[in-house]
Design a protein around this nucleic acid. Structure first.
Lengths: 156, 156
DNA sequence: CGGCCACGGTTCCAAGATGGAACCGACAGT
DNA sequence: ACTGTCGGTTCCATCTTGGAACCGTGGCCG
């Protein structure tokens, strides 16, 4: 009766969902992307219980999305920094923000606007095909077995 | 002690995470994107408990990502179809798949390859800026208050 | 030296959530 | 009548969640 583990399913969405399919993990990464690094700051920003936060941070460290770094010795203190793997989930968050802006926002408009410093414009995320740069839609994509697809489903 | 509700936080990531921050919801949408519509098919494909599935499907219907449609009358039978709102989460799933392919895949390679029928190539999702079409990275994006940002944080 | 604070946790516990399994209700087929 | 299909619901033992109190190292201050 423990939460189903999908980390070894033959589907990278399922594998990602195993880590990212948890609102606290998602929000912790978001917060880390905004620059938060310290336990107390995460706690204050998210209003999450200290025990849950602690547990989630260790999980994210285990999974390699965050690194626990000692930033002073005297009283030993640690902070949590995004790794490359963790930083790489930002696009997913941006895509979620775009979806939320479109579907979960009232007439008052988006609470947060994203500004792209490299091009100087306010923007939103768009998910495109790596080959033709067109936005992707469900109907135009087909999934087919790849090299890592198990011959016999050893899923269970 | 019920799961924290983030649906009215002034952050569309938090709002999205409230629905999408659950691995079953994510996987159900994924499955729906693959064409699954019937209760029994979701159940078989995901190995999810019938009660949990039932509860998640109603949730997704309530949230407007799926529609419950009667497809025959005799013994009344329903199926669950993606709405536009639901179909629109596909890009997020594609971004998650890309992340999973990059970070959660062993030497054997991706289990699933995506094929873009419009351009005819195998591809992966890329998240780009709507204005300059460049892939986005955390460091190059700044979030700033938008029109829907609350003057005083009435978050709690 | 004693008292108090900051920081990063851990422990405890009540109320939920999760998931396996059995049960249900409306038919259809044979 | 008996069995099967489909879409659920009910029950219950086991986890998870989250609020609140407690802890330990060490700094600061009088």
């Amino acid at each position: 009766m423990k939460r189903t583990d999908t980390s070894d399913w033959p589907c990278t969405i399922a594998r990602s969902a195993n880590v990212l399919g948890d609102h606290w993990n998602l929000l912790i990464i978001r917060q880390a992307c905004l620059g938060t690094r310290r336990f107390a700051d995460f706690q204050a920003a998210l209003g999450i219980g200290r025990n849950i936060l602690s547990q989630r941070l260790s999980r994210l460290v285990d999974e390699g999305l965050l690194a626990r770094v000692e930033y002073q010795e005297s009283p030993p203190r640690h902070e949590y920094r995004l790794t490359d793997k963790g930083r790489d989930v930002y696009p997913i968050l941006a895509a979620m923000a775009a979806w939320g802006d479109k579907w979960l926002t009232g007439p008052e408009g988006t609470p947060l606007v994203l500004h792209h410093t490299t091009c100087g414009h306010d923007m939103h995320a768009e998910v495109v095909c790596s080959e033709c740069d067109e936005p992707i839609r469900v109907r135009e994509v087909r999934a087919k077995p790849g090299p890592g697809f198990p011959r016999r489903r050893a899923k269970a």
